[in-house]
Design a protein around this nucleic acid. Structure first.
Length: 415
RNA sequence: GCGUAGGUGGCGGAGUGGUCAAUCGCAACAGACUGUAAAUCUGUCGCCCAAUGGGCUUCGAAGGUUCAAAUCCUUCCCUACGCACCA
């Protein structure tokens, strides 16, 4: 490991302005903000880059806005001339991080993991530069974790006590609820901690939910390398009730979402996430941020308009201004003015096909019962403004049906 | 191995022989309203039937008792906790 990288650099930057930028979106600096600044200024004086990393477990094919918050912070360090490493947790993904999981996580196969990894670098490129003078590196933690033998493993486990492990919220909660905790789940924080040692890390960045795991790495660095590691935890995207946004919440924006989807998902965030969203997910500058903050706090502005701006700013990062503008127009037309969205699903059917059957086949409704319920509720309309009131409505002419507010189907009649 | 408490719909969690397709909360969906797909209010929320009713399939699995079972019995599987065992 040791000679893999050269850490000498004459291009390390550190201005007061940079320090301010580094504070944005951060939940906590460990051990402290001042310690990080000390690391940074020493690094500049000595012309020796800091080694900074964040880890991503390839558990799904896409990265989401939560990852993106961390990657944005990484980008700042890259721009300051430091060495940034994107660590693919291909090995740890096979165990599953118990963080926030009330149940044991499904263990992924190597094949699934490889598949997920493929897409990650592409998505990370929205922020990190993988070429040029100071390219970001991609490492895989399997490259050292795989090689550990039992003795190495025992050495690692001897660095921590069961009590320390049990302090962890998720574990104690699981105990309280009489849910099982498996031994391998205990290993996860240890292995993540060992990653810091294997790469000889100076700074680790992660979401605030990663605090525990990151602290283990800090502890290990101190014990094994006698080195102080900084941890930076980023604020999580959450509403004021503290509910973290995630896949289960259904509104987690994936970086691979289309401009339309991304825009729509952001619009469905609750109002109290707006400020959070601007701070964490957009590239607007501090002045603009402050003025938005004032607007929200004074209550003078219409949250819808602010949310539209937020959605626009976010989509712009991934799809460019033009597509962001298109998404905005689409949203306004569809939802504010009630027009039909572009690109709706089309299907051709023979004349005389019952509408209920078509909607069921196309998965716009879950069952015949649901179809009837929706008809009763007046939720099924044609775009001509005609309300479907008959369960047995059959297709006789081409129509565009609207189920509820968001589901559309363009039905053509086959001759 | 012994003992105790459990395994219920997407999740949490009631129910312990008929009034149970199963209280309630969350999530989801629809309607109203609005500022949007926010918030709020109302309704829906196993599958099927032209239906203020009827049929079918569900309560870890398989059998059984009963006119009747998520509820009782038997066996099995799974989880937690306690005890024992420690080769």
């Amino acid at each position: 490991m040791k000679n893999l990288f050269s850490n000498k650099s004459k291009n390390i930057v550190l201005e007061e302005k940079n320090k301010e930028e580094l504070l944005r979106g951060v939940q906590e600096f460990l051990p402290s903000k001042d310690f990080l600044f000390k690391q940074l200024s020493e690094s500049k004086e000595q012309g020796k880059r800091l080694r900074i990393y964040t880890g991503i477990d390839p558990t799904g094919p896409t990265l989401h806005l939560g990852h993106m918050i961390v990657l944005k912070k990484m980008k700042q360090f890259q721009e300051l001339g430091h060495e940034v490493i994107l660590l693919m947790g291909d090995f740890t993904a096979m165990i599953g991080d118990p963080t926030d999981k009330m149940a044991v996580r499904k263990v992924l196969t190597e094949k699934e993991i490889k598949n997920n990894l493929k897409l990650y670098k592409k998505q990370a490129q929205f922020f990190l530069n993988f070429s040029g003078k100071n390219p970001a590196k991609v490492l895989y933690n399997s490259s050292w974790l795989k090689k550990m033998n039992l003795k190495d493993v025992l050495n690692v486990t001897s660095l921590m006590t069961v009590d320390q492990m049990m302090k962890r919220d998720m574990f104690s909660k699981r105990m309280d609820e009489n849910k099982p905790i498996y031994m391998h789940e205990f290993m996860y924080p240890l292995l993540q901690g060992y990653d810091s040692v294997a790469m000889n890390i100076d700074v680790e960045i992660g979401g605030n939910d990663q605090m525990f795991n990151m602290m283990v790495g800090r502890d290990f660095q101190k014990k094994l390398k006698n080195k102080e590691k900084s941890c930076i935890t980023m604020k999580l995207l959450a509403d004021t009730s503290g509910k973290k946004m995630g896949k289960t919440e259904g509104n987690m924006v994936s970086l691979l979402d289309s401009n339309i989807d991304m825009f729509g998902k952001i619009m469905s965030w609750t109002d109290d996430m707006i400020l959070n969203g601007f701070e964490l997910c957009t590239n607007i500058n501090d002045d603009e941020f402050e003025s938005i903050k004032r607007l929200i706090q004074s209550g003078e502005s219409n949250p819808r308009d602010l949310k539209i701006k937020l959605a626009y700013e976010v989509v712009k990062i991934y799809h460019g201004e033009e597509k962001a503008e298109l998404a905005r127009q689409n949203f306004i037309n569809t939802f504010s003015k009630g027009e039909i969205p572009e690109n709706i699903q089309e299907i051709g059917v023979p004349a005389g096909t019952p509408l209920g059957l078509i909607l069921q086949n196309e998965k716009l409704v879950a069952s015949a019962g649901e179809f009837k319920r929706l008809v009763k509720e007046g939720a099924i309309n044609t775009t001509e403004g005609e309300e479907i009131q008959d369960f047995n409505y059959v297709i006789s002419k081409p129509i565009v049906v609207k189920v509820g507010k968001r589901r559309y189907l363009d039905i053509k009649v086959l001759m």
